[in-house]
């Protein structure tokens, strides 16, 4: 980035002209987007080379995700942070080292250009922290009401080093379930920021990249079976998917679940289950028992894993069944979520 005299936009809000293919669009792309990303002069088509690709046995990993969130800026992050972290994390939990991202923006007419600049700055900072480059992109403008400020789609490419093979069907009974941090912070932060329920709490989204943490864990515990980024639907959904793919049962220990007081409070008030609250920087890992301690200490040594803890284990019960054992021995089934979790008063 060598643009100390960065041009400013003349407009303060997006108009349909910014999507029209003419001068206004060019100005938008150059001042707001390409100047922030690398390389500074972004082309429609990225041509990629990396030494990692040339290693015999290395595999490409490729993923995509779309991001919509209301509000687009919230304590602990914004939709830009999410768009980078989400795709980086999808790659990382598959064992890939994330390298390149694309970013496509659908922008609502009337959106403040200053907002877009803030989002782009977040993306740039997050990409730099994760060690990925945003190498291609696109923008479209839609009429007022046809989108909610801005929607972002990112795709990511990474390289899985030779010999690494993380997959849910490798999970075995006896494996330990680890998480890297506190559960439900993102969901609670968004609920609070949205303001519909008029609840306030000092809580930030956990939105963070997990690439460095995954590399640290894999170095310390090469036997890691599988990892999953527990986003929408919370860890309950991630664990159900993994248990089903592996054909094992999973039992969680309620007393071990790492939950912030505010998340507990929010759940008690609104009748929500924290296991289903969204996270944006939380992963679940299945590790053979004899490597669990090594994996935990490696996680705890990284910024994204300071609160890492074991929360349960896989066992040879009913395939796909996830249960939660309460402090006094009762157990309940933790099923997949049906629809959206709604606040309740009953």
């Amino acid at each position: 980035m060598n643009a100390p005299t960065r041009p400013r936009m003349r407009d303060t809000r997006i108009t349909l002209a910014h999507g029209g293919g003419g001068k206004a669009m060019r100005e938008l792309i150059e001042t707001v987007f390409t100047s922030a990303f690398e390389p500074a002069s972004m082309e429609d088509q990225a041509r990629l080379t990396d030494a990692a690709l040339a290693q015999p046995g290395a595999r490409l990993a490729f993923t995509t995700d779309s991001f919509v969130v209301d509000p687009v800026e919230f304590p602990g992050g914004d939709i830009g942070t999410l768009a980078v972290c989400g795709t980086v994390n999808d790659l990382a939990v598959g064992g890939a080292r994330p390298l390149w991202l694309s970013a496509a923006f659908i922008i609502e007419e009337g959106t403040e250009i200053a907002l877009l600049e803030r989002l782009v700055a977040s993306m740039k900072a997050e990409a730099r922290a994760a060690g990925v480059r945003i190498v291609t992109g696109d923008t479209k403008v839609v009429g007022r009401g046809c989108a909610d400020k801005v929607f972002i789609t990112t795709a990511g490419i990474g390289v899985i080093p030779p010999g690494r093979d993380l997959r849910a069907d490798a999970i075995r009974p006896g494996d330990v379930v680890l998480v890297n941090g506190l559960l439900g912070d993102h969901g609670t932060a968004i609920l609070t920021a949205r303001g519909d329920m008029a609840l306030s709490a000092d809580i930030r989204s956990d939105c963070q990249g997990l690439g460095h943490l995954m590399e640290a864990v894999l170095a310390a515990a090469p036997g890691v079976r599988a990892a999953r980024d527990a986003t929408r639907g919370g860890i309950a959904s991630a664990l159900n998917e993994m248990a089903e793919a592996a054909g094992v049962a999973v039992e969680l220990d309620e007393t071990a679940l790492p939950l912030r007081a505010e998340v507990r409070g929010m759940c008690e008030i609104l009748g929500l289950d924290p296991l289903y609250l969204a996270n944006e920087g939380t992963l679940v890992l299945f590790v053979p028992e004899d490597q669990a301690a090594a994996a935990l200490s490696a996680m705890r040594a990284t910024p994204a894993g300071r609160e890492a803890v074991a929360i349960g284990h896989a066992h040879a019960g009913i395939a796909g069944r996830v249960t939660l054992r309460s402090a006094f021995g009762g157990a309940r089934i933790v099923d997949m979520l049906v629809g959206e979790q709604l606040p309740r008063i009953c």
Partner: peptide
């Protein structure tokens, strides 16, 4: 119904 919910949430029916 709140009691029904609590009975199942804590697995009291099985204990």
């Amino acid at each position: 119904g709140g009691h029904t919910h609590a009975i199942f949430r804590y697995g009291l029916d099985r204990l």
